[in-house]
Design a protein around this nucleic acid. Structure first.
Length: 200
DNA sequence: ACAAGGATCCTCT
DNA sequence: GAGGATCCTTGTT
């Protein structure tokens, strides 16, 4: 079952948490989301921090659409747009595990095996075969790239986001990277702690 | 295990 | 003209 736009229209951190365990599908490839990062409003790490530009336009659009951008000139990073239209927020998909289409994924990932196959946002983009032309694509309607519902995950880890040194100290340290506990399909496990332990 | 550096190009200042 | 929400290879501990 496809997730409805309402799913994405909620707070970005909540959507990020709930996206863990959900399924990304394109053609014969199906991936289970294992690690994400939330990019929120008033967030100095967010591409939308300086307002609307041509690149970040998808993030200002309706929730439940893709925002794909080119990173370091090489990697295509997939985000899903959150919150009501005009907010400028999204969730970055950082890692997945393969559910179906292993042969296709391995072909797109130079024949690699194991977690090296999909632990990193550029790897997810490569595995799904998406590029910037997929920006604005609604993942809640049939066809192309889709996001399907799946049972919620039980235990979640959280930690600081990766590669955002340009942000303020507060935003750099904020634990807005989330991952499924107990899976090898996660990048940089060192800095992650159980989400529950953050509640005092 | 970990560190360093190159690849590569679009976007924004 | 600089730098980036990264990945891979190579070299060192």
């Amino acid at each position: 079952m496809l997730l409805e736009p309402d799913f994405y229209a909620r707070g970005t951190l909540e959507v990020a948490r709930d996206l863990l365990g959900k399924l990304l599908a394109r053609d014969e490839v199906v991936l289970r989301i294992t690690e994400v990062e939330a990019y929120r409003r008033h967030d100095s790490a967010n591409h939308c921090r300086a307002g609307r530009t041509e690149r970040n336009a998808p993030m200002w659009g309706p929730p439940g659409r893709a925002y794909v951008y080119l990173c370091y000139g090489i990697h295509h990073l997939l985000n899903l747009v959150t919150e009501p239209e005009g907010t400028g927020t999204a969730v970055l998909i950082r890692a997945c595990e393969v559910v179906e289409g292993l042969d296709t994924v391995r072909a797109r990932r130079r024949g690699l095996r194991g977690p090296a196959l999909l632990t990193g946002p550029g790897k997810v983009g490569a595995a799904l075969g998406v590029d910037t032309s997929w920006s604005h694509h609604p993942v809640w309607q049939p066809g192309g790239l889709m996001c399907h519902d799946a049972p919620p995950v039980e235990a979640v880890l959280s930690g600081p986001r990766v590669g955002v040194d340009y942000a303020t100290a507060e935003d750099r340290e904020a634990p807005w990277r989330l991952a499924i506990a107990g899976t090898p399909w996660v990048s940089q496990r060192r800095s992650l702690v159980p989400l529950e332990s953050r509640h005092r």
